[in-house]
């Protein structure tokens, strides 16, 4: 082997090790902190909606999203529903979608509830808590504010009032 080809082999091997090393460290460190943070890309989902159709994250492509995890058994969730509905009406024409993800309950419970509360924004159902584990949702309500490019702008844990919600959506739309 000549000196030159030997050097090439060395460089290739070292590069391969470097790439594998970086990959190993990145995956293991990311894997542990798989909790979505502000600034991260929002996790995908594929869930049945209360309208009977299957919805995925891609269906809301290009829109700013307010993703709210809730349940009828969670009182603060119930209390913030009117605010979400109101903001949905206010912003839906400006490219903002409010998506409610119900955690663990069945279709009829969700339908009854939506009817009673006058909820019109799309509600998806997560009976097996798949989305909950992907989003690493702990206590509820938890609301993810996602900008039109799919980046998480803000994560809110706890009840939202009308004003904060409005302010958050405004920031989301104005991209500040």
């Amino acid at each position: 082997m000549t000196g030159k080809s030997r050097k090439t082999v060395q460089v290739i091997i070292l590069l391969a090790i470097l790439m594998l090393g970086v990959y190993a460290i990145v995956t293991v460190v990311m894997g542990k902190e798989g909790v979505p943070k502000e600034g991260d890309q929002v996790p995908g989902f594929k869930l049945l909606g209360s309208d009977g159709a299957v919805h995925t994250l891609d269906d809301f492509d290009g829109q700013a999203k307010v993703i709210n995890f809730w349940g009828t058994y969670c009182e603060p969730c119930v209390r913030e529903m009117p605010a979400l509905q109101e903001q949905w009406l206010k912003w839906k024409d400006q490219g903002v979608e409010v998506i409610g993800i119900n955690v663990g309950e069945d279709k009829m419970t969700v339908e009854n509830f939506a009817q009673k509360m006058g909820v019109e924004f799309p509600v998806l159902m997560d009976p097996n808590r798949d989305a909950v584990s992907d989003f690493r949702v702990g206590p509820m309500p938890t609301t993810f504010f996602v900008d039109s490019s799919g980046r998480i702008h803000h994560i809110r844990i706890g009840q939202l009032d009308l004003e904060t919600l409005d302010k958050q959506i405004e920031q989301l739309v104005n991209g500040s």
Binding site: I17, G21, A24, I25, V28, V29, G31
Partner: peptide
């Protein structure tokens, strides 16, 4: 799952 432990394993590799 810390970066330094994985780095050590990579270096051993």
């Amino acid at each position: 799952t810390s970066w330094w432990f994985v780095l050590l394993l990579v270096m051993i590799g």
